[in-house]
Amino acid sequence: MAGDAVVTVRLVRSFQHRNFKPVVFHQVDLDQTVEDVEMFTPGKTHVHHLTPVFSDTMKIIHQAHGAKTNELVMSLDDDEKLILQNGQTLRAAGVTNETEVAFFKKEDYGLYKANPKSAW
């Protein structure tokens, strides 16, 4: 049913410092596109106090009743399968009720993935 999903978006400020803020969205319509969700998610173009970077990429990091990664921010694996593509609906991208996705800057993710070291 449209509009009855709960989706948690993890706003990633820094992979290296493991800094993120989870935001829970209720009554999410899974038939809306990835771009529609990005436009109204903090971190895209407004609410800069939550995340100072302009996020541009979303990736599924956990689904209800599934295994979680040992990585504190998100898994670095399966990008081809888990990164949400523009033009897709959330449902087509594999988002279901109680899915958790990360919203981050792709350039920062690429740098961290090339050298996945944490700084404290």
Rank of each mutant, 00 (worst) to 15 (best):
L30Y: 01
L30R: 00
D31W: 06
Q32W: 06
E35S: 11
D36W: 08
V37P: 00
V37M: 12
V37T: 06
F40Y: 09
F40M: 11
T41N: 05
P42A: 07
G43I: 03
K44M: 12
K44C: 13
T45G: 15
V47R: 09
L50A: 06
P52F: 04
P52G: 04
V53N: 11
F54C: 12
S55H: 09
S55E: 08
T57S: 08
T57R: 06
K59Q: 09
K59N: 03
H62Q: 09
Q63W: 06
A64C: 05
A64P: 05
G66K: 14
K68E: 13
K68S: 15
T69H: 06
T69L: 05
N70S: 14
L72D: 08
M74E: 15
S75D: 14
L76A: 05
D77E: 15
D78H: 15
D79Y: 02
D79T: 01
L82A: 07
L84T: 01
L84S: 02
L84E: 04
Q85L: 07
G87P: 09
Q88P: 00
Q88M: 07
L90M: 03
R91D: 07
A92K: 08
A93W: 04
A93F: 01
G94S: 03
G94A: 02
V95Y: 02
V95W: 02
T96K: 12
T99R: 05
T99L: 03
T99Y: 04
E100R: 10
V101N: 03
A102Q: 00
F103Y: 05
